[in-house]
Design a protein around this nucleic acid. Structure first.
Lengths: 104, 104
DNA sequence: TTGACATGAAACTGTATGGTTTCCTATAAA
DNA sequence: TTTATAGGAAACCATACAGTTTCATGTCAA
């Protein structure tokens, strides 16, 4: 189930933070690690999980590996959330219906 | 950080499934448990996590406790996803810009 | 007021998760 | 052709997490 890989990937604050960082452009592992108080292998693991979820892609350039955001993977989440958005304004909707009832 | 509680709550497939079920209306713990192949305490724990994330609310009615969806809590997620939606059609946007360049 | 039903709570367990340290490989630069 | 830099991989560790069993509490119905 690919969906679960996405939801799992975005459940960690560090990984969401990395995604925000990558929205600014490609970055190497060392670049990314410089922004966190954890070791390189730890960040590398987070990147692996993001990659498995399809949220980032990686390409090699010389001895560097550049990580790039793949935001389309978030459409899965958007669709899921969107299902519930029909209930967001339910109270408002109920109110509207009540008003209409009142009109009759 | 309340945000993290939401992201964590929706990261589990059982909990997302419970949310879908509750979108149909209030349900008791026993009602919900009947739909899963796990014990009642296990489901109760999932409900606790959803409640802590603000995704459901609970009210007592007699000896039952009815769980109700609080979909507004998902706006946090919607906002987060929405930030990235600006990049969804970036390729399309790039293409459009390329075409415009071509016109000049 | 006794029995059945709905839930809460505690103790325990196996595995997943996020992190570390250590060592190995590959590329770039001197 | 060494040396420094960038990253991969394995072994290990503590804690969190999802689940279980067992027992306690509160409410309804006979």
């Amino acid at each position: 189930m690919r969906e679960q890989l996405v939801f799992r990937a975005i459940s960690d604050p560090t990984r969401r933070s990395i995604m925000a960082m990558l929205s600014d452009g490609e970055r190497s592992l060392n670049d990314i690690t410089a922004n966190y108080e954890m070791t390189r292998p730890a960040v590398a693991k987070h990147l692996k999980i993001l990659e498995r979820g399809g949220l980032i892609s990686v390409r090699s350039q010389g001895r560097e590996r550049l990580h790039r955001l793949q935001p389309d993977a978030l459409k899965t989440v958007a669709d899921w959330v969107n299902f519930f958005s029909q209930f967001w304004d339910e109270k408002l909707e109920n109110l509207k219906q009540a008003v209409e009832m009142d009109d009759e």
